[in-house]
Design a protein around this nucleic acid. Structure first.
Lengths: 106, 106
DNA sequence: CGGTATCCAAGGGGATACTG
DNA sequence: CAGTATCCCCTTGGATACCG
């Protein structure tokens, strides 16, 4: 039997940071430091852990350049890029939500 | 300044269970016990907590019937229902992913 | 620069028992 | 039936220091 597709998707992207990593990498390849800045208040350790997990899952690739100082670039794979419609619908919803008044009551 | 729409969305639905609650309520109003069964291995406490939070956020409504035994029904609000495109894209992606071979290596 | 290595905090979540 | 009330655990994430 096949599990619920929604749950399957959640297993790959349900973490506080993964979705934001994808959001930023959709713009193109980024270095570790760039990601760290654009994502927000995430520590090195946590960002690294999330990136490694996503690499394991085949969502992105990690390329290390043998330079000094070192450079490491992260790029979405096709699989990772294919998540783009989900991000797009989340962005649309968030935008609409921000323009509503309802949520301002809280 | 307005925050990133994706982050805004995440704040409302980023929890292991909320997305599944929405998935199930998209089919229509459900009772507490029904939800518990259809969602999977979630405890009463956790399910209740998530439902209350979502009620707070205006994603669903809670209706209590003064009966014995008691009956409590949960229904998505328009706002909650408007999340449907996000769920749909997640479902599509998960389905495609399940049909790939890549992920089976892990 | 882009990491590990530790140590620690928080909270989401789980198990069980009890109640209106 | 649909909840509270406890108690506990474990994962995720944070702070800091050090390394190649």
């Amino acid at each position: 039997m096949t599990p619920c597709p929604v749950e399957t998707t959640l297993q790959l992207i349900s973490s506080r940071w993964k979705v934001l990593i994808i959001r930023d990498l959709l713009e193109g390849t980024k270095r570790f430091g760039e990601l760290r800045k654009s994502i927000g208040p995430v520590t090195q350790k946590v960002l690294t852990a999330n990136l490694r997990a996503m690499e394991e899952d085949g969502l992105l690739t990690r390329k290390v350049y043998a330079e000094v100082p070192p450079r490491v670039e992260y790029t979405l794979t096709e699989l990772g890029y294919s998540l783009h419609p989900i991000l797009a619908s989340m962005s649309r919803w968030g935008k609409a939500y921000q323009q509503m008044d309802i949520h301002q009551a809280r």
